[in-house]
Amino acid sequence: MMSQVGAGGRVAKTLYTFSACHPLLNMANKGEGMTLALGESRAVSPWRIIQTEVLANGAVMDTLKSLSAFAIIPAVDYGQVAPEHRPAVGEAIERVLNSAFRETPTSVVDHCRAALTILLSRWLVQSGHERDTVFGVDLGDLAKKVEKLELYCVAKSAQIVALLHNRGKPNVQHAKGARPPETGDDELALQAIGLVLREFGWAA
């Protein structure tokens, strides 16, 4: 078994060590919440330990949850996206998928913010807004436009990701005493993209 160790819940540098299952019983929360890496150096997939239990024969069984953006972000139904918007939407989603659970939480949040900016602006154009009124507009302002159309879940999700993005800025952390995005915050940003795709009817 390979376990991924990160100081303080933040993985700045990945360290892979072998550990038998039984020592998990002596760890905090029996290892639950830790990240488990399956595979080898050439191909590794991350999993979260969500339950550890001892079977009748004395063996230790772990229940795992895949840490993959593919389990969070649905495939895009590009038939619902205007042809001129498909390249931008596809590239934005691809960058998010490539960063998820591989880069730092701050980086993942940044990619999610950029993707949501693309999604909201392109959807607004398809809904009748002029390009000049939405292209190049900040995510927070796009969220306000969407909120006026009563897509409240989309608007609030976008606003949360925009706030998390600001927390990744050192000057904001210093001025407001805000903590930077941490593990879990990035997953929330990924969930926001999945919700937006479903709300727009762009999920396959």
Rank of each mutant, 00 (worst) to 15 (best):
G140T: 13
S127F: 02
K144W: 00
L190I: 08
S68Q: 04
I160L: 14
L120G: 09
Q173Y: 00
G79S: 14
D138F: 04
L120M: 08
P87I: 07
V125A: 02
R10E: 04
L190M: 15
A82P: 03
A12E: 05
G201I: 11
E199F: 09
T17G: 09
G140A: 01
A203M: 10
S157R: 03
Q191I: 05
E53W: 10
R48Y: 00
D62W: 13
A43M: 01
K156L: 05
E182V: 15
G90Y: 09
C112F: 12
A88I: 05
P74R: 07
L38F: 03
E91C: 04
Q191F: 04
P74L: 12
L197M: 12
S107C: 12
V108P: 03
W123Y: 12
R102N: 04
N98R: 13
V54K: 14
G201L: 10
T183Y: 07
G128M: 08
D186S: 15
E53C: 05
L36D: 00
V172I: 15
R10C: 00
P170V: 09
D77P: 04
A71I: 01
Y16V: 12
G90R: 12
V96P: 12
T14M: 10
V172C: 00
G194N: 09
A92D: 06
L97V: 14
L142D: 05
L195H: 05
L149D: 10
G184C: 00
K169S: 06
R131P: 10
G184A: 03
C112T: 11
I49L: 14
P181N: 02
V54S: 04
V137C: 02
A92E: 08
V89W: 11
G168D: 02
A143I: 09
Q4S: 10
N26P: 00
S157F: 04
P83N: 02
Q80G: 01
G177T: 09
S127E: 11
G140K: 08
C21H: 11
A59N: 14
T104R: 07
V146N: 06
L188N: 05
S68G: 13
V154Y: 11
E147W: 00
P83C: 02
V134K: 06
Y16G: 10
A100Q: 08
